[in-house]
Structure formats: C-alpha cells, structure tokens
Design a protein around this nucleic acid. Sequence first.
DNA 1: TTTACAAATGGAATCGTTTCCACAGAACAG
DNA 2: CTGTTCTGTGGAAACGATTCCATTTGTAAA
Lengths: 349, 349
Amino acid sequence: MRPFGCARKDRDIFQIAKLADVARRAGVGNATASRALSGVGLVSEETRKRILKAARELNYQPNRSAQALKGGRSGMIGMVIPRMSDIFFASCVDAVQAVAMTNSSLLVVSATHDCSDRTMDAVKELLHHRVDGLVLALSEYLTPAMVRSLKTLPVPTVGIDAPLTKAGLPSVMIDNCSSAELATEHLVQHGYRRIISLQVNPELFTIQERHRGYERAMQSAGLPATQHVVEDRAAAEDLLRNCGRTGRDFALLAANEVAAKYVVAAAKQLRMNMPEDFGMISFDDFDLADAMETPLTVVKQPVGRIGEVAANLLFRGLNSEDGAAAKGGALETVLSAELVIRQSCGCKK
Amino acid sequence: MRPFGCARKDRDIFQIAKLADVARRAGVGNATASRALSGVGLVSEETRKRILKAARELNYQPNRSAQALKGGRSGMIGMVIPRMSDIFFASCVDAVQAVAMTNSSLLVVSATHDCSDRTMDAVKELLHHRVDGLVLALSEYLTPAMVRSLKTLPVPTVGIDAPLTKAGLPSVMIDNCSSAELATEHLVQHGYRRIISLQVNPELFTIQERHRGYERAMQSAGLPATQHVVEDRAAAEDLLRNCGRTGRDFALLAANEVAAKYVVAAAKQLRMNMPEDFGMISFDDFDLADAMETPLTVVKQPVGRIGEVAANLLFRGLNSEDGAAAKGGALETVLSAELVIRQSCGCKK
DNA sequence: TTTACAAATGGAATCGTTTCCACAGAACAG
DNA sequence: CTGTTCTGTGGAAACGATTCCATTTGTAAA
C-alpha cells in the first residue's frame, strides 16, 4: 500500500517539461524559446511556430515559482475574508475564483475569523507568497496604521464592502446607507413606529453604514432610532419577548442574514408571527427566505456581481502595467441593491 | 490619485528583507544563516542566536517562490471542490484553511462548478504552482484515466467525500450508505410506505452511496425502491402534486440540502404540510432547518470535523517525509453522522 | 608533537525563468 | 564597396533560497 504520492522529482508522470526541454526540441536557445512563449520580444514567425509546436508536444507549462522569483507574475491572487461560512463571502469567493480562472490565475484565500489582528498578517503572508494582486473583504474599520500600510501595498488591490477608499484603493459595494434608508421607509409606510436596527457585529463598516441609513430614515419620519445587538438566538428571544408583545407597531431592520435567522428562530420558539406580531426586513437574501413560514422581505445584494466586478477591476489593473484600474472611473464602484418584497414587512402576498 | 499600487520593487515598504540581508547583519555567510533559520544542519548556539535576532529585527520572511523553486516546500496546499456556494463545501474549505494556517501554509482553492473536465485540469494547475499537497473533494465517480493519474500524483493527497481509495489515496467521509439506511428505516417505522429517494445530482459518488443505503433499507422492509431526480423547485412541485396527494404514507429521503430546499419551497407553494401530507428526512443540516414551519429531520454530517481531519491527515503525511499518512490507519477514515430528529419525519415535538 | 576527527563556517552551484547584452547576418543608404 | 541600421538569436546574469563540498578551527587520541 502506497498511501501518499511518490517523490517530488517524477517529471515524466505529471509531464513537467521545462523551458530548456522545449528549447532543445525546437532547436533554439533558451532565450528565444522564452520570448516566443511569452510573446514579448522579437522572434521570427517560423521559429515561433516551431517553438509553440514543441511546447504543445511536451505539454509544457512554465514553472510559476521560477516566474514569480524572477519578478514576473506568480499567477495567483490573494483574497482576505472574515469567514467562508457566510453566503455572502462564499459567493464572493466563488465569483472571484471564476474570474481568476478566466485570467488563468489561481486564488489563495485566507480567513480572519473576525480576529482583526489577523487581517494585516494575512495580507503580509499573501505578499510573501508573491500574489499578483489582492481582493480584501475587510468589513472592519481601518485603523490609521492599517491605512498607512494599505497605502503602500506593493500590488494592485481592490476592496469588497470595505472602506478602502481612505487608503486610496478602489472598492466595490452596494450603497448600504441608502438601501437601509429605503428599507426603513418601507417599514414606516406600513405603520410600524417602534423600529429597531438589529445587528450581530455592530463594529463592522457595512453594518454601521446600514445603521446610518436607518437613522436617517427614522429621523425623517420623526421617530426615535434604537440600535440593538443580538449575539445569538437567545438574545433575539429576549428582544422579542420584551418588545414584540407590547403593541402592533414593532418592527426590525436586521443588518444581515445572521441576525435575521436568529430572529426567525426566536419567533418560532415564542410562537410569534410576522407580520402580525412584528415586522422585519433583513439584509441579504438567502436560499429559503421565500419559503419560510412568513416569506422574508429582504434587501438583496448582487453578491455574485460584486465579486465579479471587483475581480475584473483587479485584473484590469493587473494587466495595465502600472495599475490604472480606477482610471476613468470613480474609486468606489457602487452596485445597486434590490428590495425584494415578500411578506415579513407587512405587504400582502 | 494613485489608485493601485506602486512598483513591485519597493522592498523597504513592506519590509521584504532577504536571507542575504539577515546574513550580512549577523555577520555570517549565506549558508549559515539558512541553516540557522531552517533548523537543519550544524550552527553554534551563539551564532544561531545572532542570526535569529537579525532575522527578527529585519522582519525576515523567506521568499516562498525561491524555496519552492529550489525544491522545498511552497507553503501552499491546494483544494479542489465542486463549488463554494454550498454549506458543506464552504465549511470544509473553512476548516482546511484553518488547519493550513496552523501549519503555516496557505490554501489555494479551485472550483470545478460541476464540470468534471475541470477536475484534472485544476489538479494540474495546482501542481504547476507547486502546492505541497492536495485536498480533493470530488464527488464525481472517477474514470479509469483519472484513477491512473491520481495514482501518480507527485504530492500527498487526501480526499473528502471522494472515492479516492481506488487510486490508493486516503479519504475522509461519513458512512453515507449506512446513514441513509438508518434514516430510511426511521421513515419506515413511522409507517411511511411509499418512500422516494430524491436527488439533484444523481451521478455523484456520495449521492449514489446514499441511494444504496436507501435501497438496502427498502429491500429489508419489503418495499419498492424508487429514485427521483429534481433539478429545480418546479420539478419538486410536480413530484409532490403527483404523489403527495394520494395517501398518507408518502415520504422523501432527500440526498442533500439542495433537494430538501426545493421540496420545502414546493410544499409551501402547494400548501402541503409535513409530516401530515408527506414525511421527509434530508441529508445535511442547515441554518434554519430547525426554524422552518416544520422543523426538518436531517442526517447531520460533522462538516467542520471532516475538513479538519482531512487536512490534519494531509499535514501528517506532509511532515513525515515520504508521506506516511495512512500508516497505521485505514485508508478510509469514516466519521459518524448523526440523525437529528425534529418533526418532518413524523416524530412529535 | 603529529595525526585524526569533529564542529562550524562560507563559497558556489543549483532550481527554471526572464532579460540584458552582444553578436551575426541581412538590408539598405551613401 | 563600406558603413549603418535592423532583425533574430543565444550566452549568461539575475531572482532568493538550499545544499553540497571544501575549508578552517578546535580538540582528542596516538
């Protein structure tokens, strides 16, 4: 039984030919072969064909480590996210990976698991591995030290849902503030008066933006703004017990899918119903949001698009030598979110 | 406005010192510095300390590309999965990444998006990037050609939920067959007689294993086995319309979370209720499975554990030179799944 | 004191690319 | 016919780490 592989050296088996092999087979020098394959520099048409043919026959693939070492592209981009187990980030990673593949790059992911010390460490580690570019989905606020570091990042970088603009880096996101304002207004129109802004990680940038939009709407409506943090289902139950029973004008704006799920579970436990006992609109659409006991009204972000746009922005910058990604465009790309109206907000089916 | 980064060369800014810098600062030769830092070879205690100090002061990190090129570790492992947007795989990736981090490695992910041609291409590409090891979550059946290739993989490799045993590679999974059998028996005990095995991707290895277990249970119970494929919600609606209305003894064994979600949505549409109109047990626990109108009975896989165990197995093999991962253990590591009984199976609350 | 051996060290080759530079030959203007 | 320019080409020097091997030094055995 040979459980694992064999030695690293077997070039035959996984067909690892090197440039020199190609050059020899084509009867040319190393340098010429390199030029022909990379497409830069002068090579006569005839020679180029011979070299490409040899490369094809040997199934040649350049050694990325060597390329990276020499200072060229490593063929990898890095991505930092809080965690994978969150539809939003998982979808972003999926989209970025797809775009990376199109640009014949690989994606290296690192998750911080909400430990914000990890963020810059992750970035540094990715850089030591010579990634060609970075996608940062840092929802945390940046410390001055981080801004300073990010400003001097040696590779093209784009942010997703991240306040990277401060560091002069392009980023892609929805207009969290306006979307929250819109959603809140919708709740107000349904007659809800005691509306609470609900969050799990109140310290995050996007979450605070959403809260800001909520506040704006509440102020316009002449209603008091209240912020509440639920770290788990039990906390959601407490909240519903305290507020939900005391009148018909209670509603929640859940800042993300996690908060909404806590509330749904708590409501089930307490046998409370939406929209009768309380109303709710949540950020982030999820799989069964429309097949719940009360289909959930949500602010749906174009998750796939966000990752895709960010990655494309990155590669555009990557391919135009000195990183002219944002040239001719704003630093911040704002995609529009959609209010998907179902029933938890009070709208009839 | 300087949208993207600066030139690649700035070593000052992101503190990229090289070995030679460390050596110079410590007043020793290149070779000695390397030995001291990597811990192999003879270096006097005093010199070692001086070198480590210099490295710390310069914030030295080895250039992974150079290390990889020289033939050592690249400090990266690769992972191939069908897609990210699936809790099961997302959790696996999360777990593997965490273990990789512990072993100071980075994780490179590639998704095939169910295009099985992509599988071996992804593996090859990862190998060209000189990953130190591979985690393959290929739920597809292996073609003979793939088995042949996998047998000669030049790096340690473990499988997740994948039939890699045929290629002599260790893999980690739950006992899909027995779990399905158990779940089916449970439905039978509740009096369901017309039980259908429901799947989205019937060609996948794990799914077929589950179907096999279902068949075994049905046969034991003297009941006819039926397989049904639902590719979307509409298909689930058709199924429920045809079978669910005709009696009280109808139940479904959903082979995964996706199938279950289609059914739940379809049932809502048709205003059918579990467990009265039909019963269901599904593979894969998900966030709101217990907060649905009818809390779902599920076979819960230890998702996090699977990834963790697989990754640990990989690194054990990686660290013991010639890949003795499976030494002293079976090739296949089977973790136990848990039947989480809620209400969709007919059990009272 | 000489010989032998071990410990500690640095020089230089190596990994596979890219790229600078020098050189050969062709084309062309003077 | 002689320079000059241009096109193609290959040799060789990087890139940054590891590692073989030779060298120096210190110490113990003969």
